[in-house]
């Protein structure tokens, strides 16, 4: 579990985002146990209070479920998991569009470049 944090966004939200990414890319799956708050704080090198706050946030967003005296688990609700993935894709695309729009590239060219780059990057990573 390795994440780098920026100093200007609340750390607990960055932790939540990290979990969403792990769900989206399939590293975390429905019903999977996640580390305790203490373990998370220690591995991510954050304040245990922050880990606590991140878990609370994820519980409120129904990303994880916690039963008394059991480790927290990723939700089994496929709708939520699906929406996490969509949400991440959409926000990423939106921020991409925001930076590309001023350059005014025709959509066909843009898509071609994206396709080339994306598959090249993926093959480099051995995917």
């Amino acid at each position: 579990m390795n994440a780098t944090f920026n100093n200007r966004d609340p750390v607990y939200l960055q932790v939540v985002r990290y979990f969403k990414e792990q769900i989206a890319n399939g590293n975390l799956v429905a019903g999977q146990e996640i580390p305790s708050r203490r373990e998370l704080a220690a591995t991510m090198k954050i304040n245990p209070n922050t880990a606590q706050k991140a878990y609370k946030e994820m519980e409120e967003q129904d990303l994880i479920t916690t039963e008394r005296n059991y480790p927290s688990k990723i939700t089994k609700n496929e709708n939520i998991l699906q929406s996490v993935r969509e949400e991440l894709i959409i926000t990423a695309v939106e921020s991409f569009l925001q930076s590309i729009r001023p350059i005014n590239v025709p959509i066909d060219e843009l898509l071609r470049i994206v396709q080339e780059k994306y598959s090249k990057e993926s093959s480099k990573e051995g995917l």
Partner: peptide
Amino acid sequence: TEQMRQEEGKSVVD
């Protein structure tokens, strides 16, 4: 610190 980041988007160094 977290409140400062959330409400004003500022790091401690800021």
